[in-house]
């Protein structure tokens, strides 16, 4: 293993994050606060409770997931897209490193950023609602796994994208709808039966369910299934990345 290289990439990426620390943290904090005002206060006052949990608290896991997923994807995709865009990728390609080390460096940094943002949002949520986390270790595990798997996914998007529009496309077109339809702000059991079945094809339902269970002890699907879903998603992403480096897809001419 070329540890100095992993460290170099990780430090370099984190430095970019800290250079723009305010912007990096401010926008998720502000948008989360807005969600609390709209969903928690305005709508929540009419819904009051979902499955015995105050609606304001019920949406916290969903809000964290929404931010963490979008941040993980955008950080990781930008992290690898940018060197491609400004041609500094030549250095990565000519270095004595393998794909696994490159991925650990870039994805590790992107996941760290997403995790930090997730934790900041959790802290912000504390200002608005009372939340008690029933399974803190499981909560952190789900959070870390989500950060990692979505950073891997973002890495793939960054390599695939040939312009900035494409970089935005997948998060906007795929992730945001899946998150909204994935039970972030409601329980799947509140849907009509047909939609419940359809929802089971949405991978984010499994993540959301497991993550919410770690907060409130209730889940739409079993926790084991949730873990399996994340593991599967991670494995698929790793497989795709392995193929990308093997073939040089969109990174080597």
């Amino acid at each position: 293993m070329n540890f100095p290289a992993i460290r170099a990439i990780y430090k370099y990426e984190m430095a970019r994050f800290f250079r723009t620390l305010m912007e990096s943290l401010l926008s998720p904090v502000i948008s989360t606060s807005l969600y609390f005002v709209v969903f928690g206060a305005a709508i929540g006052s009419r819904i009051s409770e979902v499955e015995g949990v105050a609606y304001g608290a019920f949406i916290v896991p969903g809000l964290i997931m929404l931010s963490v997923m979008t941040q993980a994807i955008s950080n990781a995709s930008f992290g690898i897209y940018f060197p491609k865009f400004i041609d500094t990728i030549f250095e990565i390609l000519s270095a004595p490193i393998n794909f696994f080390e490159i991925v650990i460096g870039y994805v590790g940094a992107a996941a760290t950023k997403a995790l930090l943002i997730g934790l900041v949002i959790l802290a912000t949520a504390h200002f608005f609602v009372d939340i008690e986390i029933q399974h803190p270790v499981a909560m952190l595990t789900f959070l870390v796994l989500t950060c990692l798997s979505f950073s891997l996914f973002g890495f793939i998007i960054g390599i695939w994208a040939e312009n900035f529009q494409q970089l935005q496309l997948i998060p906007l077109l795929v992730i945001t709808p899946l998150v909204f339809l994935g039970g972030s702000f409601y329980s799947i059991s509140m849907l009509p039966p047909v939609w419940q079945t359809i929802s089971l094809f949405n991978p984010i339902v499994y993540l959301m369910s497991g993550f919410r269970w770690s907060f409130f002890g209730q889940a739409d699907v079993s926790v084991g299934l949730s873990l399996l879903a994340i593991a599967l998603f991670t494995a698929i992403c790793l497989g795709v990345i392995w193929w990308i480096f093997k073939t040089g897809y969109r990174i080597k001419s």
Partner: peptide
């Protein structure tokens, strides 16, 4: 072709290269 990250400091980009090639600081 000159290809460098515009917002990075000179010393950091040089240190980055050294690390990338597996060399200790």
């Amino acid at each position: 072709e000159v290809a460098l990250e515009p917002f990075e400091k000179v010393i950091n980009t040089v240190k980055f290269s050294r690390g990338l090639f597996g060399k200790q600081r």
